[in-house]
Every structure is written in structure tokens, then in C-alpha cells.
Design a protein around this nucleic acid. Structure first.
Lengths: 148, 148
DNA sequence: AAATACCTTTACGTTAACGTAAACTTTATC
DNA sequence: GATAAAGTTTACGTTAACGTAAAGGTATTT
């Protein structure tokens, strides 16, 4: 269930395919804030969401420190403080710019991969043409077609 | 000019805003292949393109090793070897999947930033409404607004 | 009560991607 | 020919993000 209230460390680790070591490390760095029952960590669904965000951040090339900055900013932004709110808006704008850059990078990369793939297929077609010519030259015995 | 044939290390470093140390490191890792005049490195426009690709890769969260893999694969893919060509296509497909994942991540992040920004603006509007009320209530004497 | 399964802390080790310093050579300029 | 500017190699230092023991606590199962 997604509405479950609490999670153990290994539950989270398994769900998101990370080690418990990583989860503890994220807590140590101030990105997660589990409560305790005795010594044992108890993670809330807020922690679970944050873990998801941490990993997404990593995939996008964000460092833990960057992600933590965002968390902190969000936590410490009281909706009654104008200065904080403006700072938050500014930070959001910055991150947006970063994402724009990444989208451009990805688009570029995709274009280059398109042409690369085209060349590959062309070269393959060339090869197979030659192969078929050979096959024709030896048309006496039929043969098996190749699959990929 | 973009069609210039060769570049010094500091020219490249300045153009892409990296240190010469980094450029030498990239060579050391086999990502760049400058020739030499005496001791001095001379970079070709191919090297320049590769440096650009290295940096784009970094922005997309690729390690130098991953980028090198792609370079190597590209270099070592003779258009006469079917096996290599197929391997190249496979690698391309993998990278495409990775880019897809990143696009999803970015889209998610953008949505969350949209709602975050909306909340910010709402809170700001609330604040300003109150401020205006106060101003009206004490319209007799104008006063200084508080800041923190 | 012994084993099993999770959990904990402490702490040293590792890899990637450079930074930084030292000592030196080559080329351009005054 | 002295000096500055840009290049070089060698090599140790640093940071992030964990990996990997070691040594032990707690709870359930057998």
C-alpha cells in the first residue's frame, strides 16, 4: 500500500533498490528524518517521498547537497515570511533554468544518436546486400534467414 | 572561428570554462588525443568536439567512463563488422532508454515546481492583502514597514 | 537456549574527478 | 639576456557517496 504510515529501513531499501547503508547515509546528511522506537529507525511516508526525490535528483545529476538545499528551503519557507517566499521563487527559477539546459542537452544527444543509428543501419544494409549476392552466387542449396 | 584547425590547451580551457588540469585529466583518461609539438599538446577540432560532448555528458549525469565507452565504441565500430554494428545499435538503444528516464524525471520535477510556485504566489498574495488592510486601517499617519 | 533475521554504531577503505603545489622547460617580449 | 607567460610532469591532497567489515543489540522461530 502507498498509504501505509511507517516503514522500516529495509522496506524502503528494497522498494527503491538501494542499500540500507545509503539510507542511513542520507539520514546522516540530513536528508531524511526518521523517528526512533528504541534504537530502530521508523520512516514516515514523508521520508519515503523524500527518498524518491533524492533518487530522482541523482538521476538528473544533482548532488545530495543540492537536493538537501531544496528540502531545507522548502521546510524553512514559512508562508508568512515575504523574504523567504521571494527567495524560494528565485531558487525555483534557477532550477527551472537548469532543467531547460538539460532538456537541450538531451535533445542534442538524441539528434546525434539518430544520425549515428542511421549510419549504423546503412552500413548493416550494405553488408547484407553483399551477403545476399554471395548467397545468390551459391544458389544451389537454400539456407536459414537470420533474425536479431 | 569554428573551422580553426588546432587549439592550445588554454584556448580550449577558456572556451569551455574548465581548467587545463581537467583537460589534461581527460587526455589521461583516454577521452582526448592531442598530438604534440615537442612537449606541447595540440588539439584538433575533433578533440574540441569531444570536449564539448564530455561536458554535455557531465551535465546529463554521465561519468567520464560512460562517455569514454561511447567514444571507444564509436571509434572501434568499423562499418564492415556486423557484430560491432549490432553492438553499437544495442548501446544506442540503452542510452535512449536512459534519456527517456531522464525526460520523465524532468517532467515530474517541472510539475512539482509548478505547484510549488503556485503555492508561493498564493501565500504572497495573502500577505499583501493583509498589508494593504493594515495600511488602510492606519491611514491617518503613514508609517514605516517592518523588515527582517 | 540456540539459531535466524533485522537492526544498530563505529570506523576505516574506495572510487571519481579533479585541486594544488613544486620544480622545470620552452617561447615570446622587453 | 633577463623576465614573464604559457606549457610540462610528478605527485600528494580533497570531496562526495557510499562499501565493507567488526562488534554488538533485540525479537521471533525452532
Amino acid at each position: 500500500m502507498n498509504t501505509k504510515k511507517t516503514y522500516s529501513i529495509s522496506e524502503l531499501a528494497k522498494e527503491f533498490d538501494v542499500t540500507t547503508r545509503s539510507v542511513r547515509f542520507y539520514e546522516d546528511q540530513g536528508l531524511l528524518h526518521p523517528t526512533r522506537r528504541g534504537q530502530t529507525r521508523i520512516f514516515s511516508s514523508k521520508d519515503r517521498v523524500r527518498l524518491k526525490l533524492i533518487l530522482r535528483g541523482k538521476r538528473m545529476g544533482f548532488s545530495l547537497a543540492e537536493t538537501k538545499e531544496l528540502f531545507d528551503l522548502w521546510d524553512e519557507t514559512p508562508s508568512g515570511n515575504e523574504k523567504q517566499l521571494l527567495l524560494m521563487l528565485e531558487t525555483l527559477a534557477n532550477k527551472r533554468a537548469q532543467l531547460e539546459q538539460q532538456k537541450n542537452d538531451i535533445a542534442q544527444a538524441e539528434m546525434e544518436m539518430d544520425t549515428a543509428e542511421a549510419r549504423c543501419r546503412e552500413a548493416l544494409a550494405e553488408l547484407q546486400k553483399k551477403t545476399r549476392k554471395q548467397a545468390k552466387a551459391e544458389k544451389a542449396e537454400p539456407e536459414v534467414l537470420e533474425q536479431k
